[in-house]
Each structure stands twice: as structure tokens, then as C-alpha cells.
Computed example of a mutant assay.
Amino acid sequence: MNQVLLLFLMFCGGVAVAFQPSINGRLAQKTGVLESSCISFTVGAAALLILVFLVGKGDMRGVSHAAWWELSGGLLGAFFVTMTIVAVPRIGTTAAMASVIAAQLATGALLDHFGMFGFREIPLDGKRAFGIALLMAGTALVFRR
């Protein structure tokens, strides 16, 4: 898969992530916060299960060789979805997404810098740090009361 296609797909993923909290928040008005989060993950898991059976090329049995922390992604995702369901109705989608993006970029830069989880090291240089600082400043600007 070429880099332009990957960039486009990640852009589409960003659009989806921006819609998700508002959609889940509306569902939470009818079902409750934790219930909405559970329903969201159940629908997502069902869709992924169908895809695994239709086009999956991996081996689900490999999970038996995974370390405990390699299975924590689902917990982190559940925490993220639940927090957005709580935050978006209170602070708005823009402020919530700005906060999420700033945190993701800062954390991602640290993960890259230290080559965490066995991935290649990408040093945190001044240019990257300045970009993160600008994003933090932008987050503060959209977080007005």
C-alpha cells in the first residue's frame, strides 16, 4: 500500500473519529454512558468479526502467544470511547478532538523517540517539539469558555 493511500485512509479515520463521539453521545442519551460505549464496541466487534471471516489473512490463534499488555488496546479503546461520550456533550466536539489530537501527537512523539514496543526510533527534534507546542497552543485557543 503506497504512502498517499495510507495518508488518505488515516485522514478518513480521523473524520470517523470526529463523528464517533457525537454519535455515541446521542446513543448515550437513550441508553446511558457505559451502555453506549458497550453497544459501540459490540457493533464494532461484530463488524470486525465478519471482516475476519471474509477477508482475514492472519491467525486468531496467535493471541495465545501475546503478552498481557498486547491485549490492552481494547481497554484503552474502551476508555477513550467512554471519555469522549462524557466530554463531547459538555465541552463540544472541537475542544474534545483538539485535546485528543494534541495528546496523541505528544504521546506519539515520545513513543517514536524511545522506539517503544519494538518500533524504529524517530528522534524528537526541535521542529517536531515546536509542532507539538503549536498544537497545544491551538488546543488552548479552542478550549474557550
Rank of each mutant, 00 (worst) to 15 (best):
residue 125 D to E: 11
residue 136 M to H: 07
residue 93 T to N: 15
residue 137 A to G: 09
residue 126 G to D: 11
residue 86 V to W: 08
residue 117 F to E: 14
residue 71 L to K: 14
residue 142 V to I: 01
residue 118 G to M: 05
residue 83 M to T: 05
residue 139 T to Q: 12
residue 101 I to W: 09
residue 92 G to W: 00
residue 116 M to S: 14
residue 51 L to V: 03
residue 83 M to F: 02
residue 45 A to N: 10
residue 116 M to G: 11
residue 85 I to F: 09
residue 56 G to F: 01
residue 101 I to G: 12
residue 72 S to N: 11
residue 91 I to E: 13
residue 134 L to C: 11
residue 57 K to N: 10
residue 90 R to I: 00
residue 130 F to V: 05
residue 104 Q to W: 03
residue 108 G to A: 07
residue 81 V to L: 08
residue 51 L to S: 14
residue 41 F to K: 15
residue 112 D to F: 03
residue 39 I to E: 14
residue 132 I to P: 06
residue 74 G to H: 07
residue 123 P to L: 03
residue 43 V to F: 14
residue 119 F to Q: 15
residue 72 S to E: 09
residue 118 G to Y: 05
residue 110 L to F: 11
residue 140 A to V: 01
residue 46 A to V: 05
residue 76 L to T: 01
residue 80 F to K: 07
residue 57 K to T: 04
residue 36 S to C: 03
residue 79 F to G: 05
residue 72 S to K: 09
residue 115 G to K: 12
residue 56 G to N: 12
residue 100 V to I: 10
residue 96 A to R: 02
residue 34 L to R: 15
residue 114 F to G: 12
residue 77 G to C: 01
residue 47 A to I: 10
residue 56 G to M: 02
residue 129 A to I: 01
residue 75 L to K: 07
residue 77 G to L: 00
residue 121 E to W: 01
residue 38 C to I: 02
residue 84 T to K: 12
residue 64 S to R: 13
residue 52 V to H: 15
residue 89 P to D: 08
residue 45 A to P: 04
residue 120 R to T: 02
residue 131 G to M: 02
residue 81 V to H: 12
residue 100 V to C: 09
residue 123 P to Y: 09
residue 87 A to D: 04
residue 41 F to S: 13
residue 66 A to N: 09
residue 136 M to F: 06
residue 64 S to M: 06
residue 83 M to R: 08
residue 114 F to P: 07
residue 35 E to N: 13
residue 67 A to M: 11
residue 111 L to G: 06
residue 133 A to F: 03
residue 114 F to S: 12
residue 79 F to L: 04
residue 52 V to F: 14
residue 101 I to H: 13
residue 110 L to W: 10
residue 86 V to I: 05
residue 88 V to C: 06
residue 77 G to D: 02
residue 63 V to F: 14
residue 57 K to I: 00
residue 80 F to I: 00
residue 118 G to R: 11
residue 67 A to H: 15
residue 73 G to A: 05
residue 80 F to H: 09
residue 38 C to K: 13
residue 48 L to R: 14
residue 104 Q to G: 06
residue 50 I to V: 14
residue 65 H to C: 03
residue 65 H to G: 09
residue 55 V to M: 12
residue 53 F to C: 10
residue 142 V to M: 03
residue 92 G to L: 00
residue 89 P to S: 08
residue 130 F to P: 08
residue 71 L to W: 13
residue 73 G to H: 09
residue 85 I to W: 08
residue 137 A to E: 08
residue 35 E to H: 11
residue 116 M to A: 14
residue 117 F to I: 04
residue 83 M to E: 08
residue 57 K to S: 12
residue 56 G to R: 11
residue 106 A to W: 04
residue 112 D to P: 07
residue 96 A to W: 00
residue 79 F to M: 03
residue 78 A to T: 01
residue 80 F to M: 04
residue 135 L to I: 02
residue 90 R to C: 00
residue 92 G to D: 04
residue 34 L to D: 15
residue 39 I to M: 15
residue 55 V to K: 15
residue 37 S to Y: 06
residue 100 V to W: 10
residue 74 G to E: 05
residue 124 L to Y: 07
residue 118 G to I: 00
residue 87 A to K: 07
